[in-house]
Design a protein around this nucleic acid. Structure first.
Lengths: 242, 242
DNA sequence: TATCTGTAAACTGTTGACAGTTTGGCCTGC
DNA sequence: GCAGGCCAAACTGTCAACAGTTTACAGATA
């Protein structure tokens, strides 16, 4: 059997283990948005009973990762174009706050590490050629470092927990414009500069501007895609470019 | 029996009903922070089995309203002073965003209604005498109107769903400073003025300044209280002034 | 051929019972 | 009188089974 999870002893309850597994599967994209979860099937493949599984599902439901329709079943939350835009607006405000706090609280060493990280990115071929990707993994690393540097636990949880998976999801859908990579790098540098100056206002502004660009950019991408479709334009797995 | 809930037909599942009940009880303060919930007792008094109750609890757990310790039980989430401060920081950023969006999206009629609401408050005796309260209920109404006017569903859900109960909780603990009521009213007027001008930047700034004051103020109140205690200063039900 | 209907299978919603852990009290010994 | 350990009751964690609903398929009819 390929799914039994009796590896970890139950220092934490079964529900915790199952919830973590599900979250990981959703974030990693292994469970695609809109995918239906069969309780029986999942319980069997995870090697647990339906009870704990249902409780784990309820928890993720409370975090808006899953969605249940009575008597029908549960699906991975599917986002409309409008949902995505709304969430990105929220992210803009929250990461702006995080950056402001980081300007005050982040240790010098971590800021220096951030700067070195950007130096590394600059040398990356794809950025130099202005064609590539600015590999999103590293983009996320950059943002997460700053969020973590804010020192606000609730904020960290919101941004890296609940919104994290969204960035992963639309990452597959947003194809970078040529020239964007270099611009992103410039904006990142502006942010780090503000952090080094320990200027919360400038840091917040730089981050929000950066994310506003990213949002506008994603909006264009998705709007163009949305025009071709009808209805509320659910952004599911229309294109998987892995 | 004083707790059977077979009034509503089950267009929604038992779990939904129970979760709503629990949330209401938490928000209203009927279940105080730190209070322990007995599964058996609750299930009996609600007239449901333990299964659905546990699932409802898990959902609220995902929303950070409840907290479970393995093999011990579940308690209403208790906030430390630091938690509260962090949450208020987040609220500052989010309501700032809400106000900025409201400046763009809120219908003229609703802004006018907001203005009338403030006129009503001004005539209130407690405000004129600068002694009273500026009755917090109405304060919340004001903020909720603006949040609702933002048109961002996710934002509305975050602010009026998950953070709502916090405002209720610390409301019981923060005693107003003399003179504060008049200041609050001034700040509210400044916000409405910015909304009328349809100036998103000014509106956001006004709201954030207003909330920053409120936060500083609450910080003082609680810091003074916290000094007397030891440890992480859990703010539970040290004083209930109902 | 297409549509409607009825039946059966599959799945979700709920319940009750069993196993393991914690907690509180009581007793014994120092 | 006090500390430590043992025992029992209560509670949480988990599971298997039952009831109700939805869905899909097959057959009949227009």
């Amino acid at each position: 059997m390929a799914g039994t999870l009796d590896t970890k002893v139950q220092a934490q309850s079964l529900v915790d283990v199952v919830a973590e597994r599900l979250e990981a599967a959703i974030i990693s994209g292994q469970l695609e948005p809109g995918a239906k979860l069969s309780e029986q099937g999942l319980a069997a493949s995870l090697g647990v009973s339906r009870g704990p599984l249902r409780e784990a599902i309820r928890r993720l439901e409370g975090r808006k990762l899953l969605e249940r329709t009575p008597n029908i079943g549960v699906r991975v939350k599917q986002l409309s174009l409008q949902d995505l835009n709304e969430i990105l607006q929220v992210r803009e405000a929250l990461e702006g706050l995080a950056c402001s706090l980081a300007a005050r609280n982040m240790p010098d060493a971590e800021i220096a590490a951030l700067k070195r990280m950007l130096d590394g990115h600059e040398k990356q071929k794809s950025v130099q050629e202005n064609t590539g990707y600015y590999h999103e993994e590293k983009n996320l690393d950059f943002h997460f470092s700053i969020v973590a540097g804010s020192g606000n636990a609730r904020l960290i949880q919101m941004l890296s927990g609940d919104l994290h998976y969204l960035l992963r999801v639309y990452r597959h859908k947003a194809r970078p414009k040529p020239g964007r990579a270099a611009q992103v790098l410039r904006e990142h540098r502006a942010i780090v500069t503000a952090l080094e100056r320990r200027d919360p206002v400038a840091a917040e502004q730089a981050m929000r501007e950066h994310l506003r660009h990213a949002r506008r950019y994603v909006e264009e991408q998705l709007a163009a895609e949305g025009e071709a479709e009808t209805g509320p334009a659910p952004m599911g797995r229309t294109r998987t470019l892995d």
